[in-house]
């Protein structure tokens, strides 16, 4: 079976992300890119799925890691190879800013059709932490005319590789699903714990090839989203500190929540 895992490089939130003063983009000072944590779950699920099948005697399974767009994707593709992917494909010139998830989905769909048209399962994170939108996975399913499972919290591929049983969290519990392949699966936290590749694997991945597909040759079409302007969030009014003995704090807090904030 052929698997594809679509991954994205996102700014490391721990590195302190700031907009430029004119709002045209992110301040490059101190900006560091990492693999999106949800895409890391997706990679791990793809690799474990392949390993399980291989242990049961399946042969010739392969995972292609795919990254689209101008974000610094080479490093995250190398990380995917070190984790256990068999092939890495990059579409560096896709005219899709990292904020335009529909355009990213159109580009990724075109790349999958060109590089791995026989993909039976396409894994990706349930959302990317730069946009927190989760538009990419369902849009990718639509572009490829495939079903998708959004935010999988359980996943079990049938031995014949024809369908999978899965669950997803919804308010109050989980939905249980039975999907037919080929399909897109977006992965939630908690299903698998991503492996940390050994240094030797990371070093070896540096010399492995990354295939480059040009967006022009893929013939990607579709409208572009209107441009975005970045701004810091509006400041919250200063915190009202309540001090004193705990019973006084409790009384004062409940009074203010009722009369001042009208929150209870």
């Amino acid at each position: 079976m052929r698997f594809v895992c679509v991954i994205k490089a996102v700014p490391d939130p721990r590195a302190g992300v700031k907009p430029l003063a004119d709002g045209s983009g992110l301040d490059p000072a101190g900006l560091k890119f990492v693999i999106d944590p949800f895409d890391e779950f997706a990679l791990e699920l793809a690799i474990q799925t392949k390993e399980k099948r291989s242990a049961a005697g399946a042969q010739g399974d392969a995972i292609t890691a795919l990254a689209v767009g101008g974000t610094p994707a080479t490093e995250v593709l190398r990380h995917a190879l070190a984790m256990g992917c068999d092939r890495a494909v990059h579409v560096p010139d896709a005219a899709a800013p990292s904020s335009d998830e529909l355009a990213l989905a159109r580009s990724a769909a075109a790349a999958i059709r060109a590089a791995q048209p026989d993909a039976a399962l396409i894994f990706t994170g349930k959302q990317s932490i730069d946009n927190d939108a989760g538009e990419f996975g369902p849009a990718l399913g639509e572009c490829l005319d495939l079903p998708h499972l959004g935010a999988a919290s359980a996943f079990d591929l049938s031995p014949d590789g024809q369908r999978f049983l899965a669950r997803r969290r919804v308010p109050g519990g989980e939905d249980a699903l039975d999907l037919r392949l080929p399909a897109v699966v977006t992965v939630d936290k908690g299903l698998v714990e991503p492996r940390r590749p050994a240094l030797a694997r990371l070093m070896k991945a540096k010399s492995l090839p990354i295939e480059v597909l040009s967006a022009t040759s893929l013939g990607i079409t579709g409208p572009a989203a209107p441009p975005i302007r970045l701004a810091p969030p509006p400041a919250r009014s200063a915190c009202v500190m309540l001090t004193g003995e705990p019973p006084d704090i409790a009384r004062e807090l409940v009074r203010r929540l009722r009369t001042e904030a009208r929150a209870i």
Binding site: P13, V17, L26, A225, I228, P233
Partner: peptide, 19 residues
């Protein structure tokens, strides 16, 4: 107006009526 980068940044986008 939308949250980006885990709410550390917001984005503003003007969506025309053409589509």
């Amino acid at each position: 107006r939308r949250a980006r980068q885990g709410g550390n940044i917001q984005s503003l986008q003007d969506i025309p009526s053409s589509s």
